[in-house]
Simulated assay, not measured.
Amino acid sequence: MAKGLGKGLSALFPGESLSKAESVENINVKSIKVNPYQPRKIFDENAIIELSNSIKEHGILQPIILRKKGMTYEIVVGERRFRAAKLAGLKEISAVVRNLTDEETMEFAILENLQREDLTPIEEAEAYQNLMENLKITQEQLAFRLGKSRSHIANHIRLLSLPEKVRLYIMEGTLSMGHGRTLLGLQKKEQIFPVAEHVLKEGLNVRQLEKLVQKMNEDVPRETKAKKKDIFIAEHESNLRDYFGTSVTISKSKNKGKIEIEFFSEEDLERILELLNE
C-alpha cells in the first residue's frame, strides 16, 4: 500500500478516469454485500430517499467501486448509492471491480468518508483506531498515510475514552467534538457523564462548558490548590499535551520534578508508549 495515500487517491473515486484494464460493469445487486470495514454507522434516511428518487429519474451517474469476494462482490466505495439503488428497485448497478486487499479496502472506505465529511467524530475515531490495530501502525504513521496531522488523529482517538452514553450523544450530534474534548479535561472522570447531562439540559456551548470545567477543577480544598504555574512550564505542558493527545502535568520543586502523562485505557497507554519509543 503506497504511503501518503490520502494526499492523492489517483482515480480511486467515481468520476476519475479508469485504467486501461478497467471498465464499468452492470452487477446484480443481489450479489453485492456491504463493506464490513465501513466506518459510517449512521446513514441519513432522508438523504437516501432523495438519492433514490434522483436515481429513478436519472439513473446511476457515478459507478460504485467493488471488489470480488468469492462468488459475490463487496462494496469498497459507494454504499450510499448502493442503498439508494436498491430502494429505487434497480436490479443491477453500474460498478468498477478492483482487486484490493482487506487493508486497502478498509483504508479506502475510510478515506472516501473522510473526503466527503460523512463521519461523526466518534465514527472517525473508531475508524482510526481500527486502522492502527489492523495495519499495526502508529498514530504518526497513520497521520502520514491519510494526509492528516498527528494531533488530529490523537484528538479524535481520545474521544473513545469518554463514557459510552457520552459517545452516543456525540454520534447523534447532540454534543459536539468540542464538548467531548472539554469533558475529558475534568480531573474527576466520574463527573463526565453528569456534566454532559447538565450541558444538554442547560444547552451550554463549548465556551460555557470550558468555564464550568475550569471552575470544577479549581473547586478543591484551599490547602491543596496549586500555585500559579510558571509560564514556561505551562507552555511545555501545552506542547506535550498536543504531542501525546492527552493531559500532561509538569510539577517542579527545588531539587527535582516530575512529568505526569494521563491515559484512559490499556489501548491509550500502548499508544502513548509507542510515541515515547519513537
Rank of each mutant, 00 (worst) to 15 (best):
Q38Y: 15
K30I: 07
M106S: 04
G245L: 01
N113I: 04
K254Q: 11
S52D: 03
N99D: 15
I32H: 00
G8Y: 08
G70H: 02
K254V: 11
R181M: 06
F193R: 12
S247I: 08
T224I: 10
A125R: 07
L200E: 00
E22A: 11
E202M: 10
G173W: 00
F232L: 09
F108R: 06
M71D: 13
L184F: 11
I157A: 00
L142I: 03
K148H: 13
K148M: 08
A127F: 06
K86M: 10
I65F: 06
K211F: 07
A127Q: 02
E124C: 07
I93L: 02
E124H: 06
E79R: 12
N277W: 14
H152W: 13
I233G: 05
L87V: 11
I192R: 11
V77L: 06
I259H: 01
V166Y: 00
I272K: 09
G185Q: 15
L100D: 03
L200M: 05
G89I: 04
V77D: 12
K256C: 05
E112C: 01
G4H: 04
G178W: 07
L162A: 04
V213F: 11
Y128P: 01
Q139S: 15
M216L: 14
V77K: 10
G245T: 04
I259F: 00
N155K: 11
A154F: 10
G245D: 01
F263W: 11
E197W: 04
P194T: 03
N255D: 12
E92Q: 14
E172T: 04
L18Y: 05
S161P: 04
L131M: 14
K188Y: 06
P163R: 00
R167L: 02
K136R: 10
R150K: 12
A11D: 15
A11M: 15
T249A: 14
Q38K: 09
K86S: 07
S23R: 08
A85Q: 02
